[in-house]
């Protein structure tokens, strides 16, 4: 049994990093829990539960600041939750070792792609017909730029199946998979970085709920672990959110890139070493 006194501060740090990068904090908490001797499937189950708290806590502030796009979120949630159900079922059934390596490699490739891309404002140009029919556009007040940013999403037909895969990774690994979701929003659908980060945060909540239900029924959610992790991560996320709204898109992107690189290396190393 891992002590509350140890797990609580660790969870605060995890939640802080998660909110800053539009992720759920699971990326930090899962390796820590396994290092402390918790079975990987239990770690995944606790993590995905805590992801609901982080996501909902920070999404709350972003939505009230009018940065989150509710339509983009709702459309993409249809795909992520089905993915999460499938992903969690897979985790219950198999050893996820090779998937860790693939996941790490995909992240690494995305890191290179995102590193090269620079787009502060999002897209205002022509939309394809499907995305236009889906009414995926919007505007938000940017505090750092001091103006209202208008944008139009694109390529929803491509973003949707990719979000199914992102949901699957979330359910499979018990993380928000915010990194993957933000990438899809940024690179495929052309949303401004802040909109993609905050909308991803909202989507993560329902995606995690779908995954958590599977783990709950499987009896993998340990209430004794859940208490310090949920509390700590919520406190950390609250602090992280307060910081994000005041930062520029460039700063958010730089921080996100840094986290993404660590995440990619961590996944690959764990997959290769097989220390799941």
């Amino acid at each position: 049994m891992v002590s509350f006194e140890l797990l609580f501060p660790i969870s605060i740090v995890a939640g802080f990093i998660g909110a800053m990068a539009g992720m759920g904090g699971g990326v930090v908490i899962i390796p820590v829990l396994t290092l402390l001797g918790v079975d990987i499937k239990r770690a995944i189950a606790i993590s995905i539960l805590s992801v609901i708290a982080t996501s909902s806590g920070s999404a709350s502030a972003y939505i009230r600041d009018h940065i989150t796009n509710l339509k983009v979120g709702m459309f993409l949630e249809m795909f992520t939750i089905v993915g999460a159900l499938v992903g969690a079922k897979i985790t219950l059934a198999v050893s996820p070792k090779p998937l860790y390596i693939i996941f790490g490699l995909v992240l690494l490739a995305s890191w290179l792609a995102l590193f090269a891309a620079k787009d502060e404002m999002g897209h205002t140009g022509a939309q394809d017909r499907i995305t236009n029919w889906l009414e995926l556009e919007g505007s938000y007040p940017d505090q750092a730029l001091g103006q209202v940013v208008h944008y139009k999403a694109r390529r929803a037909y491509f973003g949707a199946p990719l979000m199914y895969l992102a949901g699957m990774i979330a359910g499979l690994l018990g993380i928000g998979a915010g990194a993957v979701k933000v990438l899809i929003h940024d690179l495929v659908m052309g949303l401004p970085p802040k909109v993609s980060t905050t909308t991803s945060n909202m989507i993560i909540g329902v995606t995690a709920l779908a995954g958590a239900s599977v783990y709950l029924v499987a009896g993998l959610i340990d209430p004794g672990l859940a208490a310090p992790v949920i509390l700590g991560i919520a406190v950390g996320a609250f602090l992280g959110t307060r910081l994000l709204v005041r930062m520029s898109n460039q700063a958010v992107r730089r921080f996100f890139l840094f986290i993404l690189l660590i995440l990619a290396v961590e996944m690959i190393v764990r997959g290769v070493r097989g220390g799941l």
Partner: peptide
């Protein structure tokens, strides 16, 4: 209209999480 909905959704999430955390803290 968008503003109203944003506020409502935001507060639902906030209040839900706060109640949940309050229950966990009370349990502890």
């Amino acid at each position: 209209q968008q503003f109203d909905m944003d506020a409502l959704v935001g507060y639902i999430l906030l209040i839900g999480v706060l109640i949940s955390l309050a229950l966990v803290i009370a349990a502890l």
